[in-house]
Amino acid sequence: MENITSNLTELLILIFIIITFLQSGIDKASDWGGNTGWLKDHFSGTILAGMVPLMVGIILIIEVITGLLAVAGIWKILASNDPTLALYSCVLACITLLMLLFGQRIAKDYAGAFTLTGYFIVCMFGVYIMS
């Protein structure tokens, strides 16, 4: 119980990452056609237009790994008060969000890019407190 109360902020950030990234990865996997179809239209006319399936596949894999690292990070914090895996999850979440931000900026979807800012702040705060 002491590990929960002394690491409450870290645990809540990790739960946020699990919900955000695992749900997104599962959504991409379960509706591959819908996601790639929408993104092909979103990136049409950009330098990324021909790479949509590859980009979605890479993001899907990284999102799932990020979410699973967050699950493992929670377990490691609760079992031994070790935030190493949690830190890796937060760092990978930040890298993923930067990749998504790059895509949104290339597509000139400035509102979508702005939306990622809140997610990035939460994940960067996780990096800060776990490092």
Rank of each mutant, 00 (worst) to 15 (best):
A79Y: 03
G37L: 10
D27L: 13
L92C: 03
F21L: 03
V56I: 15
E10T: 12
L14P: 04
S6F: 08
G25T: 09
F120W: 07
F16C: 07
A86R: 05
M55S: 10
I18R: 04
L101P: 01
M1G: 14
C123L: 03
I65R: 00
E10A: 13
T115R: 14
L85W: 01
E63K: 08
V64Y: 04
G126M: 01
I47H: 10
S30G: 02
L98V: 10
Y119A: 13
D109W: 01
I65K: 06
T84H: 06
L85K: 03
C94K: 02
H42G: 06
A93P: 06
T66P: 02
A70K: 05
I129R: 08
V122C: 10
V127S: 00
V56F: 06
M124Y: 01
T36N: 11
N81D: 15
D31N: 15
I18N: 03
A93K: 05
K76H: 11
A29L: 15
L22V: 12
T84C: 02
F120E: 08
G34L: 11
W32Q: 07
G34H: 11
L14S: 02
S89K: 03
I58P: 01
Y128C: 10
Q23A: 13
K28C: 05
G103A: 09
C94L: 08
E10W: 00
V71Q: 07
Y119M: 12
Y88P: 04
V52C: 10
I18P: 04
G33M: 09
I47G: 14
F16T: 05
F21R: 03
T96P: 07
L116R: 12
T9I: 15
L48C: 09
T117D: 04
K28I: 08
L60F: 13
